[in-house]
């Protein structure tokens, strides 16, 4: 999914960009709160398994023990596994898939967009046709086919998500490059004999980054949702636990043990919401024209 990133003309700045941006970001209270929440979730994903060392695959109690009773904060699932342990361990997998798919997206998207926007002509034509080709593919269906055909391992799932999601980044990067390559300071660098590579990644890219950063942040969220969707349909690696997978495998118990579906759903929801809010804050902070409002 493409998030609407509102792009504006750049105006010269007096302050150091980072300080300025942070100052703006701080004004967006919900974004700051969301950032704090994300930090907490990340902390939980990294250190949680050490602080709460229960094995998420071990059957520790009777199945379907409701949350808060008999010593299990979030209750147990259909096998009597500790849901809290599953949520903690699932956080790692869900965030990892989100991050790595986003990295893949950014890598392909920026490369394609930068080459197209910088070289223009035939290169641009070919690359944009390829981009359009991937835009036309029905994303989830195509990923489902990939995972079904080539196995539901984490790398394959990540790849299947990344390969259908990079087009938005490519388009944004390209349009930024198209705009910036004509600016005076780029002309100046070009005239002073900078290499193409240097121009692309040393001069233009840093200035094109703001919308790309915003888009990439949002990509993490949509990749988490994407993985959850695949898991819901059963296209998942049964040897790891992810939030989406908890929902998928407990789906049939929704009527009588709703918490086994609600809790991982809330985890996904809160995380993606936090990411969206941070993305909002980043957009405000990095988008110069909005600052003047």
């Amino acid at each position: 999914m493409t998030w609407p990133v509102i792009q504006e003309e750049e105006t010269p700045e007096a302050q150091h960009p980072f300080t300025e941006a942070w100052g703006m970001f701080r004004k967006n209270k919900s974004a700051v709160a969301a950032l704090g929440l994300l930090a907490l979730i990340t902390f939980g994903a990294i250190f949680g398994p050490y602080l709460y060392p229960t094995d998420p695959f071990e059957m520790v109690w009777m199945p379907f023990s409701p949350p808060g009773q008999e010593g299990f904060l979030l209750g147990t699932d259909y096998l009597g596994r500790d849901l809290l342990a599953m949520i903690i361990n699932g956080a790692k997998v869900s965030l990892m898939i989100g991050l790595s798919a986003a990295v893949m997206t950014v890598f392909i998207g920026v490369t394609v967009g930068a080459l197209a926007g910088f070289y223009r002509g035939v290169v641009e034509e070919v690359l944009m046709r390829i981009t359009e080709f991937f835009q036309v593919l029905p994303t989830l269906l195509f990923s489902m086919v990939l995972v079904a055909l080539f196995g539901a391992s984490l790398p394959m799932i990540t790849f299947a998500i990344g390969i259908v999601s990079w087009t938005a980044v490519a388009r944004i990067t390209r349009s930024e490059f198209l705009r910036i390559r004509e600016l005076e300071y780029v002309m100046a660098s070009r005239a002073s004999g900078a290499s193409n590579l240097n121009l692309m990644f040393g001069v233009i890219l840093p200035n094109a980054l703001p919308p790309i950063i915003v888009q990439s942040a949002l990509m993490v969220g949509s990749a988490i949702l994407f993985e959850a969707g695949l898991s819901f349909l059963g296209l998942t690696d049964p040897n790891v636990v992810s939030w989406g997978q908890i929902i998928g495998s407990n789906r049939q118990y929704i009527l009588d043990a709703g918490y086994t579906v609600t809790i991982p759903g809330v985890a996904i929801f809160v995380t993606v919401l936090a990411i969206s809010l941070v993305g909002d804050g980043l957009n405000d902070a990095l988008n110069p024209k909005l600052r003047q409002r």
Partner: peptide
């Protein structure tokens, strides 16, 4: 369940997904 049960007698089981 088989995976969890056999762990108790020292057999390590890997669940293979076939999507």
């Amino acid at each position: 369940y088989v995976k969890a049960a056999l762990k108790k007698v020292g057999i390590a089981v890997e669940v293979r997904a076939s999507a």
